[in-house]
């Protein structure tokens, strides 16, 4: 059966670590990274990439528009 799978790419230099995307993700894919970017923010990353369905909620709520979302079907 075809299964929808997705992936997000976070521009980690643009991310300010507000974690609004972490809260908005319905499948707990995203988390804030232990490391910080050059601005000193804990940037968001895909902690559980296998759970992503590409719903784009994270991208929609991101105030700094640093998330790009991809979605496809896996057979």
């Amino acid at each position: 059966m075809a299964r929808v799978i997705g992936a997000v790419v976070v521009d980690k230099e643009e991310c300010k670590g507000c974690s609004v995307c972490v809260d908005a993700c319905p499948h707990d894919v995203l988390a804030l990274h232990f490391e910080v970017n050059s601005k000193g923010y804990h940037y968001s990353y895909m902690k559980s990439p296998e759970a992503c369905v590409g719903c784009a909620n994270c991208g929609v709520v991101c105030p700094d528009t640093c998330i790009t979302v991809y979605r496809t079907k896996a057979s």
Binding site: G54, G59, V60, C66, T68, Y70, R71, T72
Partner: peptide
């Protein structure tokens, strides 16, 4: 997955 044809949301 990260291919232009699968893109659903971008800046």
């Amino acid at each position: 997955i990260l291919k232009p044809e699968n893109l659903v949301y971008q800046k």
